[in-house]
């Protein structure tokens, strides 16, 4: 193949893409849809349930204050600290629950694997940025909230190429 021919062929393969729909995800307007409600773990079988590893959700009615999540995080991110809560639960005599610092968390989800009481899961919420460092520290009360999220865009593939949504 001659040099000019090769260059024209290369240009042509690029120019063809002017007619192809764009693949880029327009992020703040569009948000990717994930499988399930976030990463969860079944302590009976010892196997997790697939989902995005975003912000945690803490079920106060299950948490016993056993500190296993905090122990699991030692040596990884040291993001989990146990704090006193003004709540009385039968199973949580010490009234302590995890507080998570998202400035440190690496979202590995090993704390979820460590929880034997179905109390700590992860959610699809990944937009955690804030203007201050202290706002990144989520108290047990903040962790109990279910995130409000609308994520609906998926990769669609047809004859004309792939697009987001």
């Amino acid at each position: 193949m001659s040099t000019a021919g090769g260059i024209i062929k290369a240009l042509n393969s690029g120019v063809k893409h002017l007619a192809v729909r764009r693949f880029t995800l327009r992020y703040p307007e569009q948000k990717l849809k994930f499988v399930g409600d976030g990463f969860q773990f079944n302590p009976e079988t010892g196997v997790g349930i697939a989902g995005l590893r975003g912000r945690h959700i803490l079920y106060h009615e299950h948490c016993t204050g056993c500190q296993l999540c905090s122990v699991a995080c030692e040596g990884i991110a040291e993001a989990i600290g146990m704090v006193k809560v003004n709540e009385t639960w039968k199973q949580n005599k010490k009234a302590i629950m995890p507080q998570i610092d998202y400035g440190k968390c690496v979202f590995c989800g090993l704390c979820v694997d460590a929880c034997p009481f179905y109390a700590l899961y992860m959610t699809n919420d990944y937009e955690l940025s804030s203007f201050t460092k202290s706002a990144l520290i989520y108290t047990p009360a903040q962790l109990a909230l279910k995130p409000k999220i609308s994520q609906d865009v998926e990769i669609k593939i047809d004859d004309r190429g792939a697009t987001h949504g």
Partner: peptide, 11 residues
């Protein structure tokens, strides 16, 4: 076509 058979890359 655009990269690996591109004469500019080959040269």
């Amino acid at each position: 076509a655009i990269f690996y058979k591109n004469p500019l890359l080959i040269s």
